[in-house]
Design a protein around this nucleic acid. Structure first.
Lengths: 149, 149
DNA sequence: GGGGTGTCGATGACATGTCAACGAACGTAC
DNA sequence: GTACGTTCGTTGACATGTCATCGACACCCC
C-alpha cells in the first residue's frame, strides 16, 4: 500500500532505508542507555552544551541549535536538573531568559558516555561502510536535510 | 564531544546522516498528520494490516511483523479501535489471542492517506536522489539493518 | 515614557512509548 | 488428567514529546 505508485527500484530502496531509519536509532539508543543511563535526548543536550567554551547556553539558543521547541527543552532540562546533570541560572542579559550549564557531574557523565557512544556508532554503523559509501551518504543526506521544511 | 575519536570524514558523514535521521521522519510525519490525520504509527498498522488478503492478522503476528512489542501494539490498537480504524475479534484458534482487522472505514482512510504519502515521500526524498545513489543507499541500508541486534 | 507587539520559559492537558507484572490459556511431560 | 513452564494480550506506572496558553519581560515607535 505504502508504495503503490513507486517503481520497483524505488520501493525496494525506500523500504530498505526505512528499516535503517528505525533500527539504527533504536540500537544506538539501547547502547547508550545500557552504557551510560542516558537517553538519546539527554546525550544530545549534554554534548551540545559541552561544545560551548564555558559550557553555558541560553535555553532559547540551545533549543534553536538542536532544533527543539523551547517547550521540549524546558521540560527536558527540568528533568536533567533534577538528576544533577545541568543547572539553570537567570540570564543577566534578559530577565525572561535562563542559562543552562553543564555541571561537573554532567560533564563527567558525558565524557564516559561519549567514550562508549563512539564505539557504538562505529560498530553499528561506520565500520560497515566503505569511504565511498560514506561520501555518497553524506552528500545525499546534506542535500535532503537542507530542503525547505 | 560526540565524535571526538572519529576522523574528519567520519565525523562529517555521521553528522550529516544524523540530521537526515531526525529531519526526514519528522517531515514525513507532519505531512501525514496534515493530509490524513494519521500518526506514522497509525499508518504503519493500517498499511501492514492491508497487506494480508483478508485484512486480518493476529496481534502477536502483526507485532512481530512490525517489530513492535505486543504491549505497544495492544495500546495502539485500543486507540485505533476507538477511532473505528480497526476491529478486534477473539482468535478461534487460540483463546488467549486476538485478531485485528482493518475496518472498511480504516481501509478508506488508508487509501486516501497512501495517495498523499507517496507524493510526500517523493517530494521530500526520492525526487532528490539519482538512481545510483538510491542503489547505494539501499545496499548499505540493508547491510546495516541486517546486522545482529 | 508609555503602549502595543513579540519573545521567553513554564505549565497543564494530552498522546505516545517503555517496562514490569498479571491472569488466562496453551502445550508438554509425566 | 494434572502439574509445570511458556506465551498471549492487558494493564498501570512512568518517561517523554506535542500543543495551546500564560505571565513576565523586551523591544520599538511614537
Amino acid at each position: 500500500m505504502d508504495t503503490a505508485w513507486l517503481s520497483e527500484d524505488e520501493e525496494q530502496g525506500w523500504r530498505a532505508f526505512r528499516r535503517l531509519l528505525t533500527a539504527l536509532p533504536a540500537r544506538l539508543g539501547r547502547d547508550l542507555a545500557r552504557d551510560s543511563g542516558l537517553s538519546p535526548a539527554d546525550y544530545e543536550v549534554l554534548s551540545t552544551l559541552s561544545e560551548k567554551l564555558n559550557r553555558r547556553w541560553a535555553l532559547k539558543d540551545l533549543a534553536a541549535k538542536m532544533e527543539w521547541s523551547r517547550s521540549r527543552l524546558s521540560h527536558h532540562a527540568a528533568r536533567m536538573q533534577g538528576r544533577g546533570l545541568i543547572d539553570k541560572e537567570p540570564d543577566p542579559q534578559d530577565a525572561r531568559g535562563c542559562i543552562l550549564h553543564l555541571t561537573d557531574d554532567g560533564f563527567m557523565v558525558l565524557e564516559e558516555a561519549a567514550r562508549h557512544h563512539v564505539v557504538s556508532v562505529r560498530s553499528r554503523f561506520l565500520d560497515h561502510l566503505s569511504s565511498d559509501e560514506l561520501a555518497v551518504l553524506r552528500k545525499l543526506s546534506t542535500r535532503i536535510a537542507d530542503l525547505p521544511d
